[in-house]
Design a protein around this nucleic acid. Structure first.
Lengths: 200, 200
DNA sequence: CGAAACGTTGACCGTTTTCAATTACAGTGG
DNA sequence: CCACTGTAATTGAAAACGGTCAACGTTTCG
């Protein structure tokens, strides 16, 4: 099931290049594959080289919530370096290639190599900003406005279903909002499932 | 207006004890005071010694969104160490005492002192978790369930108005949800403005 | 004491959720 | 190459719900 490829790994992005090679591995994911699941023991954190991976949390009520959509260059599961399990599912939305960095190696590098640690801090700071933007999105009460804002933020990249989960709305209301916005002439609907902001 | 007190500062919490004294100052805030405002030039990050401070963002539509409610022991505005301005308002919800850490000093410590950097990373990782919990909260569609979840998460500490802002709901619907839940016998309403989860 | 802000509830209305049904593809095995 | 199956895309109708506006009692604090 799990394809871990140990061939020569090239081009490890900073600051992870300084990790020992044995702490790094590479993995490919097909659409729908899980990089890890909520409550799995945490063994590593990841760098997304290409593709897209959604971090999804399942609420008690059974609702899926997309916490974060990682794309090329993003890191995944940093907080789990300090935790012994993962806090959400990581599901591949597109065929993806990730680098895995062993948790212990990362911890070690962090306390040893201050340049590594500083870069890590910077990444996390960026994440915090991203989460804030997401919160701001979710705080928009009108579905139409929220959809428009999400679209403007370039979040409709996969299916509309995924988009809806990211916005915290039902897919039906998202479809309706999209239809409304198209009718209003504010967005274009070039093809089934495709929507684009009108050039201003 | 701004009361900066330069008297002897004692008991600087780790890892900030290692910062040079000239990079640290202390400030007291009264209820409603702003520690900083959105778009102010960022000069420092903060450690909340006591009290409570809300990070509030104002959306284009004029809605207030509470991104984060900091309490004793939390740090504030870490991302702004890497940015030249603040991204939200920080408004004191209770009388608060904060330590300010000069941005440049923090940056310097981060690249110099790996222990400092590691501790910083840990703090940020914790923040990320907090934001995720907040996202999960906001994703709950039913006001009643959201209020219940917020209550279970111990977020009704100040006024119901603040609580409502934190949940992304109007205060009226929060009052109604609280009334409903009380009627259902799921929570207790010991006094005006006070609500408690029923012991299970 | 009076103003200002909080707490609370009612009524009404627009919206979103729900439930349900239909159409359109994409992939699979024969 | 086609029927077959599963998932995504859409749309309709009715019900439930949250937002908005309004009113009023209650604290708090200068």
């Amino acid at each position: 099931m799990i394809s871990i490829i140990m061939k020569q790994i090239t081009d490890i992005p900073p600051p992870f290049g300084s990790l020992p090679r044995h702490g790094v591995s590479l993995r490919e994911l097909r659409v729908g594959d899980a990089l890890f699941r909520q409550d799995d023991a945490s063994r590593a954190m990841f760098f997304l080289r290409s593709g897209a991976i959604n971090l999804i949390r399942h609420t008690e009520a059974g609702q899926k919530v997309t916490m974060f959509r990682a794309t090329s260059g993003d890191t995944i599961a940093e907080p789990s370096v300090f935790s012994d399990h993962y806090h959400c599912d990581a599901i591949s939305e597109q065929p993806s290639i990730v680098l895995s960095f062993d948790r212990q190696s990362v911890l070690a590098a962090m306390t040893t190599d201050s340049e590594f640690a500083a870069a890590f801090v910077k990444r996390l700071a960026g994440q915090v900003q991203t989460y804030r933007r997401q919160l701001e999105l979710l705080a928009i009460r009108s579905a139409k406005d929220r959809v428009l804002a999400g679209l403007a933020d370039g979040r409709l990249t996969g299916t509309v279903l995924d988009f809806a989960a990211e916005l915290g709305l039902t897919h039906e209301s998202v479809y309706r909002a999209l239809a409304d916005l198209t009718r209003d002439g504010r967005i274009e609907h070039p093809a089934r499932g495709k929507y684009r902001l009108k050039p201003c």
